[in-house]
Amino acid sequence: MTDLILAASEQGGSWLTTLADWTVSLMDTIGPAGAAIAVGMDNLFPPIPSEVVLPMAGLAASRGSFTLAEAILWTTFGSVFGAYILYFLGRWLGAERLRRIADRMPLVKGDDVVRSVHWFEKHGSIAVFFGRMVPLFRSLISIPAGVSRMHWWKFGLLTTAGSLIWNSIFVMAGFLLGENWHIVEQYAEIFQMVVIVVIVIAVAWFVFVRVRALLRERRDGGAERSGSA
């Protein structure tokens, strides 16, 4: 797959187009299970956008490779399966282990993990459900669900519900647009870019606030030492 993307770049083509071609080929080869595999990879590797993979399942269904219902059901199965892998990874890591890791990282504190877990325990249901409809967060939201030890069946129901809505929208779009699926690709690129920009701004703000707090602590500590001397 990586070779296909590199080849597309060398030929001036969009890597999303190459991904779409690869996805359709996979579905044509092994049927709707190929759609589940592609969407499952989207969960495990967030840079792979489901906004492109899902319409391909609809396109394959419009060509008669399998039915529309199979496309929606199999893509949802792939979403849930991939989400559970990350969920159990979060359970294995646990809050205490993540707290120790955070204490060793620059600009991050173990208390950040504790606060995040407490927040997730209060708002986790909403976060999991709506997180399935946001690029990048679609994958990452499964990890804190596991860390906070949300009941596995509750996580599964919320993930299934959110994924079913999101997948149905894009699979239907691919089914109705057919060979004109590139319209979805254009909007998918814009949508993903907006999310990335928002994340970059949020991270930059977090770093700014944390660095400012560290500088203030050092300044106050230096003033106290000078006063005691």
Rank of each mutant, 00 (worst) to 15 (best):
G124F: 01
D112M: 02
F191T: 13
A83I: 00
H118A: 08
S125Q: 04
M150V: 00
E51V: 07
A8N: 08
A7M: 12
E51H: 02
G94M: 08
E96S: 08
S228M: 10
V207N: 10
V203A: 15
L214H: 09
V211E: 12
T67A: 05
W181L: 08
L93A: 01
I126N: 00
R63D: 10
S116I: 03
F77A: 14
S139R: 03
P55L: 05
D220V: 10
I72Y: 01
V53A: 09
V198M: 12
N167G: 07
A8E: 10
V203H: 08
A36Q: 06
D103T: 07
R225K: 10
S168Q: 04
F208D: 13
W153H: 12
G94A: 05
A61K: 03
H118D: 08
K154Q: 05
E224S: 10
L73W: 03
F88C: 01
T29I: 00
V195N: 11
S116M: 10
F191P: 13
V108T: 14
R219P: 00
A229H: 12
V147H: 08
R218C: 03
I169T: 07
R91E: 06
L86D: 00
S163V: 05
G178H: 02
W22N: 13
W205I: 10
G162T: 07
G78V: 01
A102D: 05
R138P: 13
M133V: 05
H118N: 12
L4K: 14
R132H: 11
L140F: 15
V117D: 11
A20S: 12
I190A: 09
H182T: 13
V80H: 00
S163K: 03
F88Y: 04
I5C: 07
L157Q: 00
